[in-house]
């Protein structure tokens, strides 16, 4: 839930071909003997398994019966779809509603961050205007503001403009998450790394600022746009703090909020609960498998913790 100021990590990590995806230097152990290496691998593999075990356990439990769910067996006996069935038929709000809410909000937040982030990022990187440095510092400074401090004032602001009622709650959440400072920062850094010569060629051909931005700069910034998109989609999909505060209509809830509602209601019906955990996690897991690089770079660049 927390956004944290980007650190020294930023400067190295955002450049087009970043060091993070290259094989690292081997400071220690270059000449280490075989046994040390073997011990290292055992530790590594053991720890890696420990990382996957809980989620594997979730998937297994979701296919168990209620009675079987508290037993230490790795193969469900019998394999049961009851948990999944109940999750889809019994829970209120229904899973498809939660899923659609999560997806809709995540898409809106992602697009908004891409559009607003690249606009501001381009202006801060390339255009000259009075107050540029000051306004950019202002943007960075907002990363120092803890979200909880903003709870009361943002709640009051949204209430006074009527964004806390009914379906306008969706708008409220998206407005609060519409543009994050890391999106602007990441894109600005990337735009600054693109050679000026490319724009000058466009200028000579008579292109204005908007044409240059749209036709030349944006296509060149695809890797940074991808990093911002992944970061924001994941952040919004997993988001808890603002949805909990703003999406108070039961049917407006996102998956994380719904999951917590279910947990209160169905406290020990583990197969059902684990099925919902799988549903809430699977889309991000799929994204992670395909775009692992962007996850890692986006996090290192923006200093954003989930």
């Amino acid at each position: 839930m927390t956004t944290i100021p980007g650190g020294a990590a930023t400067t190295q990590a955002i450049r087009p071909q970043t060091a993070l995806s290259e094989p690292g230097i081997a400071p220690v152990g270059d000449r280490s003997s075989g046994w040390r290496r073997r011990v290292a691998y055992v530790v590594l593999i053991g720890y890696a398994l420990l990382m996957f075990l809980p989620f594997t356990w979730t998937v297994i439990t979701s296919f168990k019966t209620q009675a079987d769910s508290v037993r230490l067996t790795f193969i469900p006996n019998p394999v049961s779809l009851r948990g999944w069935e109940n999750a889809f038929t019994e829970l209120d709000p229904a899973i498809p509603v939660l899923f659609a809410n999560s997806l809709g909000i995540a898409i809106a937040v992602t697009i908004s961050n891409l559009v607003l982030g690249s606009m501001a990022g381009y202006a801060f990187a390339r255009l000259r205007f009075p107050g540029r440095e000051f306004l950019f510092l202002l943007v960075l400074a907002t990363m120092m503001i803890p979200d909880p401090l903003r709870l009361v004032p943002v709640y009051q602001i949204l209430r006074s403009v009527g964004l806390l009622g009914g379906n306008l709650q969706y708008v409220g959440v998206v407005v609060v998450l519409a543009v994050a400072a890391p999106s602007i920062f990441l894109l600005r850094q990337y735009f600054m790394s693109i050679p000026v010569a490319l724009e000058e060629a466009a200028k000579l051909d008579g292109a204005g600022f908007f044409t240059t931005f749209w036709r030349i700069m944006l296509p060149l910034a695809t890797p940074a746009l991808a990093a911002v998109a992944i970061l924001q989609f994941q952040g919004s999909w997993n988001g808890f703090f603002w949805p909990l505060i703003i999406l108070t209509e039961r049917n407006n809830a996102t998956l994380p909020i719904g999951l917590v509602l279910f947990q209160e209601q169905y406290s020990t019906r583990w197969p059902e609960l684990m099925a919902v955990v799988v549903i809430a996690t699977l889309p991000i897991l799929a994204l992670y498998l395909f775009f692992q690089r962007y996850f890692v770079e986006g996090i290192a660049a923006a200093g954003v913790k989930g």
């Binding site: 996957f52 809980p54 989620f55 994380p256 947990q263 919902v276 996690t281 991000i284 996850f295």
Partner: peptide, 17 residues
């Protein structure tokens, strides 16, 4: 990738789990 894995899930999912 494996060591970063637990950080990708939502706080809600990982806490309920």
């Amino acid at each position: 990738a494996a060591f970063y894995f637990p950080a990708i899930a939502s706080s809600a999912a990982i806490t309920v789990l």
